[in-house]
């Protein structure tokens, strides 16, 4: 283990892991008794009754062809199109999407493409949404100030992406503001933070 500065960044697989406890509705194709997991009990699985399970279980069952996945209510063309319009109409704020929408959509589109109606259009729409939100998030850098910044409805992946730059900018502005009042010799940790960019 190295003693480099611990990074605040998550990797994309880590973010996906964190999103995999989201409940998802499935339609099992095989009968199965109730499963007693450490995190909770799910079942009994009685096709074709719908049942809610965590995403990781849904993915596992899907890859073993033991269920069909029902796309979440927000993962359909009409809803995403409306969200895209909303994004365009409000250039200064983000529309309300699930916090982990990119991760969930990615898992579902990769493992259950056949269960999601119009999955190609959905992929395109998600990509469009991601791009318009990304450019908004980047434009938000201008709003960084040394006090606080409110950024409601930002997604996990988007946040993780802008965090290094935003936090650095914030920390520098804070230091500058402080230094204006009284000159402080930068401590070891402060000087480190300016060079730790390569960690990201």
């Amino acid at each position: 283990m190295t003693s480099t500065k611990p990074t605040q960044q998550f990797t994309l697989p880590e973010l996906e892991f964190l999103a995999e406890d989201t409940p998802i509705t499935i339609i099992p194709t095989h009968r199965m008794d109730t499963l007693h997991f450490i995190s909770g009990s799910y079942g009994p699985f009685q096709p074709p009754a719908h049942i809610e399970v965590p995403l990781w279980l849904a993915r596992l069952l899907k890859t073993k062809r033991r269920c069909h996945i029902q796309a979440p209510t927000w993962l359909n063309c009409r809803f995403l199109e409306r969200k895209y319009d909303e994004e365009q109409r409000q250039p200064d704020r983000f529309s309300n999407l699930p916090y982990q929408y990119l991760e969930i959509a990615h898992v579902l589109v990769t493992c259950a493409e056949d269960d999601i109606p119009q999955s190609h259009t959905i992929k395109r729409l998600i990509q469009d949404l991601r791009e318009i939100r990304q450019s908004k998030a980047r434009a938000g850098l201008a709003a960084v100030n040394p006090v606080y910044l409110q950024m409601d409805h930002l997604g996990a992946v988007e946040l993780n992406e802008i965090r290094p730059v935003f936090c650095q900018a914030f920390n520098h502005l804070r230091k500058l503001e402080k230094d204006l009042g009284d000159y402080i010799v930068p401590s070891y940790e402060d000087t480190q933070s300016t060079t730790s960019y390569s960690n990201y």
């Binding site: 999103a19 406890d21 409940p23 450490i38 909770g40 009990s41 309300n96 699930p98 916090y99």
Partner: peptide
């Protein structure tokens, strides 16, 4: 959609679920 169906997805918490859910994880 936002009020009802979306709420379980808005945060990664699973509050208000069945009593068999163990919050420890």
């Amino acid at each position: 959609l936002l009020d009802g169906a979306l709420s379980p997805y808005l945060s990664d918490d699973q509050d208000g679920d069945s009593p068999f859910v163990n919050e420890d994880v």
